[in-house]
Design a protein around this nucleic acid. Structure first.
Lengths: 150, 150
DNA sequence: TTATTTTTATTGCATATGCAACAAAAAAAG
DNA sequence: CTTTTTTTGTTGCATATGCAATAAAAATAA
């Protein structure tokens, strides 16, 4: 069995590290870009959904999003149908930086896929999507305290 | 261009999160398993090489490895040819927990690859390896302070 | 040789991260 | 309707993370 997960870990840490360095000039601290892009692409999304998309701890998300709000990148609005849910929206400032983040991410994708044919790119994406779907059940289960047997 | 990197990030965070929860029973705190496996598999390796393998900041590695040493999982030895380099070795305790980590990682790989044919597994590994090689140059360059143009 | 650059490792400081415990609203069960 | 469970969100505390600055050894250049 090839150690797929080790390769994925290396790639993810390298790319995240690069992004964090590059987004400093936008005054985004470590990890914040992750939340901001999701909120820009899904205006009105609630925090819990962001958590599921990013796969991070709830408390980490709370604080990252609080900080994005304090720094004026996003804002929270009441949900007319719920007192509990807080809908998240990008502010003008948030919308301004989004294209920069997007461009950086696309560039990293491009670097990552250097030398890949169109077919290989499609295959890579398809396989990764399947891996992600395979793993997300276990993630939610383990986060809830369930034990895995192996 | 498909957002490969986003899928990779989700998978990596989910798997890392699961591992960290599961390795608590070995008294390994967040991230430590990463260092320990590399040291077990490459006895005598120096910290700088571990950093390159894991793709983490040097200072983070220093502290993670210090803690592994304090908790008796690894030990540092002098390099007979160099005063600067410190060679890293697993202790008996470190060697004891290694199989558990290995088994967990293999199980996660197995979950990740559920529904994959042998051929697809091989393809996934091969493509990921190429992505990792493509990206590691940029990582080292950006970490050294070089700017990317995009 | 001596001077300069690169490699390896560490520390200070600021900040992110996540588990555990909690709370309130909403949904489901009875 | 009342009780129980699930969903969503927050805080306290301990710990990890990483940039910047520093240092010493080693390698390279001059």
């Amino acid at each position: 069995m090839k150690d797929i997960l080790r390769e994925i870990g290396m790639i993810a840490r390298a790319l995240d590290s690069i992004s964090n360095i590059e987004f400093k000039e936008l005054n985004l601290t470590k990890g914040q870009y992750l939340y901001l892009v999701r909120i820009c692409e899904n205006p009105g999304i609630i925090q819990e959904k962001v958590v599921e998309m990013i796969k991070v701890d709830r408390s980490t998300a709370t604080r990252a999003i609080q900080k994005l709000e304090i720094n004026g990148f996003i804002e929270k609005k009441e949900d007319s149908h719920s007192k509990k849910n807080k809908k998240l929206f990008p502010t003008e400032k948030g919308k301004m930086v989004y294209p920069f983040i997007k461009r950086e991410n696309e560039y990293s994708d491009q670097v990552a896929l250097t030398g890949f044919s169109e077919q290989e790119m499609a295959t890579a994406y398809e396989l990764l999507e399947r891996i992600r779907k395979n793993i997300e059940e276990d993630w939610e289960s383990v986060k809830k305290g369930h034990k895995r047997d192996y």
